[in-house]
Computed example of a mutant assay.
Amino acid sequence: MTQIINNLFEVSDRYEALFVDLWGCVHDGVKALPDAVTALQVYRKGGGKVVLVTNSPRPRAGVVKQLAHFGVPDDAWDDIATSGDSARAAMYRGTVGSNVWHLGPPSDKSFFDPIDILENPVDITRVALEDAEGIVCTGPFDATADPSVLRPQLLMAKQMGLKLLCANPDIVVDRGDKREWCAGAVAALYTEMGGESLYFGKPHPPIYDLARRRLFALGVDVADRDILAIGDGAQTDVKGAMGEDIDSLFISGGLAAAETDTKTQPDSEALTRYLEKEMSSPTYTIGHLR
């Protein structure tokens, strides 16, 4: 049974590092969440390290710019591990070939920027679907449209035997009060249709390996028991933490606010029903990060 806590400070002294989700925890897709920022600043002042672990398909540099735009200050975090960076490394190793069809909005073009963390990266060329060896999905073309509109292209891709590299396993996010589809929804549909999808963000191991490398680069070498993962996704943040044997703090007031009847704090009975349905067992739960 998860323990409902009132603030991060109640448990933070048990951990040397935090792996913190961004969207729904530190910002709402429009602006920073002040209480969350303060909680992270206080934790860092006490000597803890904060690695932001996000399923954003953007490279680290792009997320840094986005955080500044949202008003998340630099002193609230130490480093960033993105699904985009993990997936980009796989792409430049040739995981889905060298000629790829980009399924995603033009705003994600930075995904294809040169990479300097690999020796002898594969030359990647974006091509039309009919000429592709694989698919790189950073999201649907239109985040407000149901992913099923992509069935014709995905059917063609499946018939061609193409693998789909998913740069963001999230199914949905909330931008302010507006819900949007993510690359994970497209990948799930492709898998349902019989295609093969490859994942590199939460809850899958590659992004946690990257997050640990980010910690090590900060001069921190800690055991998994000394890391707390924080996030609002039962099937991403909590599931990933469970798979890595890391304790987790579930933010019930994010994606699951309605299901958990969270205003300031979750309703305990609604929370229990939701977690049982999701087969999720976070160590702790809080309404909003603070």
Rank of each mutant, 00 (worst) to 15 (best):
P121Y: 07
L67H: 13
D170T: 03
E276D: 11
Y274F: 15
L150H: 13
F112L: 10
V173M: 02
E259P: 02
D209M: 10
E10S: 14
S281I: 03
E269D: 11
S56Y: 05
K65N: 14
L129D: 05
H288F: 15
L255Y: 00
V26S: 09
Y15H: 10
I171D: 01
P147Y: 01
E119T: 10
E133D: 06
D142T: 05
K202S: 02
R88Q: 11
W181E: 00
V51N: 01
L155T: 14
M193R: 02
P140E: 01
I124A: 04
R44V: 08
A211I: 14
S107R: 11
P57Q: 07
W77D: 09
L18S: 09
A257W: 06
A61F: 14
T264W: 09
R273G: 07
V127Y: 08
L67A: 08
E133F: 09
D174A: 11
E278S: 04
F70R: 09
P147E: 03
I124N: 04
D177F: 03
D146T: 05
A157W: 05
K158P: 01
A61T: 11
V100I: 15
V72R: 11
E269K: 12
R175N: 02
F200D: 02
G94N: 04
G71V: 15
K239E: 10
G94L: 11
Q153F: 08
I251W: 05
M242V: 13
K158H: 04
S110F: 04
R175D: 00
S83M: 12
A257I: 03
M160W: 02
I286P: 08
V122Q: 08
Q235K: 13
S110C: 05
G62P: 05
L210W: 07
E259W: 01
D113K: 08
I117R: 07
I4T: 14
D74Y: 13
E119M: 07
N7R: 15
G134I: 06
I124F: 04
F250C: 07
M193Y: 10
V127Q: 09
T144W: 01
V64S: 05
K163I: 01
S268L: 12
D247I: 12
C25S: 15
L228H: 12
G24C: 11
T82Y: 11
H204N: 06
R14C: 15
Q66K: 13
G195R: 01
S197P: 05
A61S: 14
A68E: 14
R273L: 09
Y199P: 00
T260Y: 03
T144A: 09
V222K: 10
G84M: 13
S86E: 12
A211V: 08
D74N: 13
D267W: 08
N6E: 13
G161V: 01
S248G: 05
I286F: 08
W101S: 02
A76Q: 12
G243I: 03
V186T: 01
V37Y: 05
C137L: 06
L255F: 01
A258G: 02
Y284D: 03
N120F: 11
A32S: 15
A256T: 04
A157D: 02
A241R: 06
R212N: 09
D261F: 10
H27D: 10
T272C: 13
S56V: 10
I230N: 08
G139C: 01
L67S: 09
V172Q: 01
A81N: 14
L215Q: 07
A76E: 06
V30F: 12
I115S: 04
Y15A: 15
G194A: 10
T2A: 15
R126W: 04
K65V: 12
